[in-house]
Amino acid sequence: MTNEQSHDGRIALVTGANKGIGREVAGRLAALGMTVLVGARDADRGAEAVAALRAAGGEAHAVRLDVTDPGTARGAAEHVAASFGRLDVLVNNAGIPGALTAQAPSRADLTVVREVFETNVFGVITVTAALLPLLRRSAAGRIVNVSSSLGSCGLMSTPGTHQAGLPPSAAYVPSKSALNALTVQYAKELRDTAILVNAADPGPCATDFTAPLGYDVPRTAADGATVVVRLATLGADGPTGGYFNEAGSLPW
């Protein structure tokens, strides 16, 4: 995968960018010269993240965005249109794990399942639908959906893999499988445009997201951001409709 040489003047929006991997992605894109819009549900946390990015020399702005609220998605699109006229990069990073004790398939709490899908899948559709007209105005639009290797049906069904050894899940894992499938469909719809759409697996990282798992995670949010940034900065010859981690393609 090749990267474009210049990113100055490009406009990027990252959802869930006030902490964790999203914040690292926002920082890396800002360091490359992009103007970064920090999407966050909590306005105060979004403002804090923007202040930190600006202190590091980046160009950043806060955008109030709850991916489960179509109104805030439309508001974000209106703000981007009025302020910049287009969008070059959309990183759909916002996601939730859901209550892990309520996800065994045979006794899954459907309230939890719906809550997870509302953010991890329907939220991506909501935000992408609102911002796609602005991405179409870009000479080189990029959409990165932050997925997980847990969404790989191939790895999940292969004995001996880390993924196959994890507890069964009716919420988080299927939500990432659905996001992978959705990524392919967006790429299919947009294949005659300049927009490239890919899914990124950042791998397990030590963030608030993984803290409830109760075990040590050696990788950092900065480590996880690497593949996301790579896909967000693909050149025109880059792939679309793919599913990647730092090492390359993952099995669906």
Rank of each mutant, 00 (worst) to 15 (best):
A181W: 03
Q163S: 04
I143T: 14
L100D: 05
A199T: 03
L190W: 08
T158Y: 01
P174C: 08
N145W: 04
S152Q: 11
L90E: 05
A139F: 02
R114N: 14
S106D: 13
N180S: 08
N180C: 10
A178H: 05
V184F: 04
S169W: 03
L135G: 07
L134A: 07
T183W: 13
I195P: 05
A170D: 07
S147D: 15
V121M: 03
F117K: 00
P204C: 02
S157A: 15
S175K: 05
P105Y: 05
V89G: 10
T101N: 11
M156K: 09
I125R: 08
P159H: 01
T111H: 10
S169L: 07
A102C: 02
V112R: 00
T111A: 15
F122Y: 13
E189G: 10
A140Q: 12
V113P: 14
K188W: 13
L182T: 01
A104C: 02
S177D: 07
F117M: 07
L110F: 15
R114E: 15
P97A: 09
T158W: 00
S169H: 06
A200V: 06
V144T: 12
A187E: 05
A170E: 05
D192Y: 05
A181G: 13
P174L: 06
T128N: 12
A129M: 12
S148N: 13
S175L: 08
P97K: 03
S175A: 10
D201N: 15
P204K: 00
T183Q: 09
L132S: 11
S106V: 07
Y172K: 04
N93I: 03
G123E: 00
D88H: 11
D88F: 09
S138A: 13
P159R: 01
R137S: 11
S169V: 03
V112G: 02
